[in-house]
Amino acid sequence: MLLIHCPYCGETLPETEFAYAGEAHIARPENPSEQTDAEWVEYLFMRSNVKGVHFERWRHIHGCGRFFNAARHTVTDKFLTTYKAGEPRPDIEALTGIKAGVKEGEK
């Protein structure tokens, strides 16, 4: 069972206290009505599905209830770091030496 660090509680706790909440850094468009079908499909359905470092959202659902972001390696399953919602993607390569798997065309 994984241990997850909640950036709000500041504690490292068992996985069963948390719930996965999908890929991170996919912001809801400012004005959805102005989105073309292609843009909306991209937002709604397309996910990076990386083999490697994946940025994803978790919720400390049986704790403080906060949503936060995490960088997790999809091969080892392990968490590399967690950070608060709204904070920018951390530089994983600088942090761990592991190259982050970011979808083409993304920042």
């Binding site: 209830g65 949503f67 919602a85």
Partner: peptide, 9 residues
């Protein structure tokens, strides 16, 4: 909670 915390904080 998801929308309130992460889209419309």
């Amino acid at each position: 909670e998801d929308y309130l915390q992460t889209e419309w904080p």
